[in-house]
Every structure is written in C-alpha cells, then in structure tokens.
Design a protein around this nucleic acid. Structure first.
Length: 482
RNA sequence: GCUCCUAUCGUCUAGCGGCCUAGGACACCGCCCUCUCACGGCGGCGACACGGGUUCAAAUCCCGUUAGGAGUGCCA
C-alpha cells in the first residue's frame, strides 16, 4: 500500500466523545478517499487514567458508527520499551538532560517570570539520572519550526517561546510528546489529522521527530503533513466540555440517533460537500473529501441540526429497517442491546407486534429520534392516563364533546363498519350533527382513546385498537365526565 | 501575560478578484395541505466585524484594530 497512512489516537479517558468521533471520521474519510490506511492506536500511557472498559467503549462505538480501521488497535503502553529506547537515543545525542525540579517548585519559582513555564534551571547542571529526575528536551534557543498544515497552510513557531519540556517522567514513564512522535514515526504516518487544540504542541513533536532521525535505531522518516481540525464548540463558543455538554456518542445512541445520521452530521462539522445536498451517503463524502476544504473556524455543535438530519434518515428507512431500528425501544428484551436505564412504558407481555403492521409507517414519519417511538404507540398496549387539564378542557366542560362520545359509543355498539375510512366518516357525521367540524369532533375521541391530544392518525389507531377496547375507553371517559 | 488559530444571515456554510442587489441548509415566522401532530409544498426574516491599503474592480489579496477561541502540566 503506497497511499497515505493516518491514525486516530484517542486516549481512553472516558466514553466516546463526539469530538473524537468527528476526528476519527475525518481520518476515515481521508484514508478511504485516497487509498490510504487507517490505523487505530490507543494512547494509554497515563496508566492512572486509562481503563479497559473505556477502550472497549471506543472500539464498540467506532464499530457502531461504521468507522472501520485497517490496522490496530495498537496500544501505546505496549510500546514502552521502544519509547525508552528513543529516550536513550535522544540522551546519547545530547538532546536531553536530567532535571530534579518538581512541577510545584517550577511553578513557585517562575511565578512572576515574563516567560512562563520551565526556566531551564537544570540545563547545564549535568545532573545524573536518578529516581527523582525527569528528562527534559533541550529546545534550541533560536530558530523556528514550520508546521505544514494542510488546512491552514504553513505555520511558523519561534522556538524561543518553547520551554524545555519533560519527555520522561522521574518514575520512568514516557510522556505524550515523545510516545506520540515515536509511534507515529514507527508506523510511518504520512498525515496527522487531529483537533486544533494540539496545534501548539506540534513543534515539540517535530523537534523530537527530527532529533530521532539521526539515530540509527530510528532512521530518517519524513516529518508528516498535519491537519488541525476546527474545534467543536457549544453555544458559548467554548470547546465542548465533558461536564457541561452532552458529548458522548453512547448517549446519542441511547436517544435513538441512527449511526448513519450521526456520521452524516459529524461530517458537516467543519466540512461541507462540494457537490449536492448536505445529506448524502458516506460513500459520496468519501469520494469528495479533501483536507483543503476543511473549515478554519470552530464549528458549533448544533443539536437542532443533528435532530433534523436524524429525522431525515429515519424517514428514509424502509418500514422493515425502521422496525428493526426501533426494536430496542419496543421489545428491548429481544434486542442485542437496550438503551441504558430504559424500560418500556407498558408491561412487556402486553406488547402486540402486529399493531405495528399498520402503525409503523405512520409513526415513522412522526419521530425524529427513536426514543420517541414508545410514547407514540404506548396507548395500544396500556390504558391511557390523561391529564386533568386536557380532560376538563376537551371533554368534561364540553357538552358537544360528550354528545360525540356518546354517539360514537352507540354507533360502535350497533355494529358500524370498523374500518378507518368508515370511522373517519362516522366521526365527521356525528360531529356535524352537533355543529362541530372534524377538527373539533375528533379531539374528545382522540383524548379518550389515546390519552393525548396529539399522536398518530386517529382512525387507523381506532381500527387497530379494535371495537371493544375503543368502546371501553370511550365509556370510561364519558363516565368520568359525569 | 505570552504563543498560535479564527472572523459571511441567530447557527452550519457556499464564495477562492468581476457570474454577489452574496447562494444553500438548520432554526424562526406566515400561508397551503390536513382528523391532531408531523411530513410535504410555497413564501418571508436574516450576514460579508471595523479601519486602512493594493486594484479599473475586494466578501474574496495585504496591513492594522477589535472580538472570539485554543495552548501555555512529570495530562493527552
């Protein structure tokens, strides 16, 4: 394979963040559209933070979204010996020096300094390496590093603004800038596509990348091209926050978002197709995706738009696909996964799948996320509870409404045709008899039978629910009104 | 503070010197369709942050200002 090599390198610090999903997706789009290789690498060097379940979560969320990778997952922690070797090579070449300043001490000492960060105290102290010394990278005092960013163009950073950063902890643990550079080099990455928040640390990685090039154990690997994606921000224009914003992909799955819809929406976070509609199959996006078309400015994570796109995808499903997608909310006990903390609003044994034969298409065009399905069909499997407010306003205080109910009950009991068309005509006629148009006359029937003033089409619902049950519910409502 | 990034309708964006009295989408508002709610259709509202240049011509190029944001850990 001679195409580009890219990777998605999340650190397992929690659930799968939508920002990570977007980064992962853009790597995927780029690789798939350019005959490249997409690699998943788990950056778990900070052992105190990583957890197996978080890693599993990332992998299963990527599978769910359909972001398939070609190599991996590899684990950064498994490369510890290689990282140590890199540190040795850098040490041997004089790029590193030992430092016994703890971060607290450095902070205290440099508090009023015009240039923040480490002040280079140990640079020339020739300290021995020991259990209390970290290894710092000797950043040149002059010169600059140019980051070749495929989205923003070349960006020049003056080295004078960079402190001598730590590369190896005093406890021997390797730090991100080194581990990252080593792994990317060894994996021959050609493009690094990641969030804009990493842009300021890029010069450090380039510095190490180049420093390693003179070591025979590492060899001369060309510095990759970069692409720093615009941040995803909330309505306050701040980077999406784990604490304040709903950012987990899993939570959107629980709400009933379709993976294809999410992928489509994420694609639009910082990029838009040159050709055609905003809503297109991912194959079209793969064919069109270019890093140079990625936007420079932060993208608002617009959940209203995300909902719209999901509704669009829901409606484009075939009825069979829709039912399959909605199964976790309809019959969670039969599904391979169920939304977390979800229970059907009806007793599972009361569920009747045949109701959906008629109702599914009618429900499908009325929901935007799948979690709205149960509320829309709940009255088929459970007697409705209507609010006092609705009941009083629509039935109890309305003589015409009560008359309509009584007449519908009478007609039902005298054997009127029980088809949606016949019921439609019946309620219209009864309403007319009492001086009400259908808009008015259907309301009490709807409320009495479904428990709500809005819902799927009424007459189909009556037909499916059946004559006896409808009479029962209408009678109950009428008696409650007396 | 310092470094870097960014700046077109409320939001996401198209625009890469003349096709722009700035196009599309979401949201919002109206009308139509209609048994409710949706869907769908039609229409409306609504933007080039500001100031200098360059040019015959700038939303588009350059500089500055302002405003946002990110980074500034022995986190990633």
């Amino acid at each position: 394979m001679t195409g580009p090599r890219v990777r998605f390198a999340p650190s397992p610090t929690g659930y799968f963040h939508v920002g990570s999903a977007r980064t992962s997706l853009f790597n995927y789009l780029f690789a798939r559209g350019h005959g490249g290789t997409f690699i998943l690498r788990i950056e778990d060097t900070d052992a105190s933070r990583g957890r197996q379940e978080w890693t599993d979560g990332i992998i299963s969320a990527m599978n769910w979204l359909g972001l398939t990778y070609d190599e991996g997952p590899t684990f950064q922690s498994h490369n510890a010996p290689r990282h140590a070797q890199a540190a040795e090579a850098l040490w041997a070449a004089g790029h590193l020096y030992a430092c016994d300043c703890t971060s607290e001490v450095v902070q205290e000492r440099t508090k009023g300094n015009p240039i923040p960060g480490y002040d280079g105290r140990c640079r020339d102290r020739q300290l021995e390496r020991g259990p209390t010394t970290a290894l710092r990278f000797r950043v040149p005092d002059e010169g600059s590093v140019i980051v070749r960013d495929q989205i923003r163009g070349d960006i020049e950073f003056q080295l004078a603004n960079y402190e001598d950063f730590v590369v190896l902890r005093s406890n021997g643990g390797v730090l991100y800038p080194l581990a990252n550079a080593v792994d990317d080099r060894d994996a021959k990455m050609t493009h690094i596509i990641r969030g804009e928040d990493l842009l300021p640390t890029t010069p450090k990685q380039i510095l190490m990348w180049e420093a390693l090039s003179s070591s025979p154990d590492f060899g001369d690997v060309p510095v990759p091209l970069y692409a720093h994606l615009p941040l995803l921000v909330n309505e306050q224009r701040k980077k999406l926050s784990k604490r304040k914003d709903p950012v987990s992909v899993e939570s959107y799955r629980d709400e009933g978002y379709l993976p294809q819809a999410l992928v489509n929406f994420f694609s639009l976070c910082g990029w838009s197709p040159r050709e055609g509609d905003e809503i297109q199959p991912i194959e079209n996006f793969i064919a069109q995706f270019e890093l140079s078309d990625v936007t420079h400015s932060p993208a608002f994570f617009d959940m209203a738009k995300m909902r719209h796109i999901n509704g669009e995808y829901v409606r484009r499903l075939s009825v069979e696909e829709f039912l399959a997608a909605a199964q976790p909310w309809l019959q969670p006990e039969l599904s391979e996964w169920r939304p977390t903390d979800y229970e059907t609003p009806w007793a599972p044994e009361d569920f009747r799948p045949e109701v959906l034969d008629v109702m599914a298409p009618l429900v499908q065009e009325r929901v935007t996320v799948l979690s709205e399905v149960p509320a829309m069909v709940g009255f088929f499997f459970r007697r409705p509870e209507m609010s006092d407010g609705d009941f009083t306003k629509t039935i109890a205080s309305n003589e015409g409404a009560k008359a309509v109910l009584a007449d519908v009950i009478a007609a039902a009991q005298s054997g009127t045709n029980w088809t949606s068309d016949a019921l439609h005509a019946l309620v219209a006629q009864i309403g007319e008899n009492h001086g009400m148009n259908l808009r008015k006359s259907q309301a009490p029937v709807r409320l009495a039978v479904t428990g709500a003033l809005v819902g799927p089409p009424l007459f189909e619902s009556l037909e499916v629910l059946g004559r006896d049950e409808v009479v029962l519910r209408l009678t109950a409502a009428l008696e409650r009104a007396r």
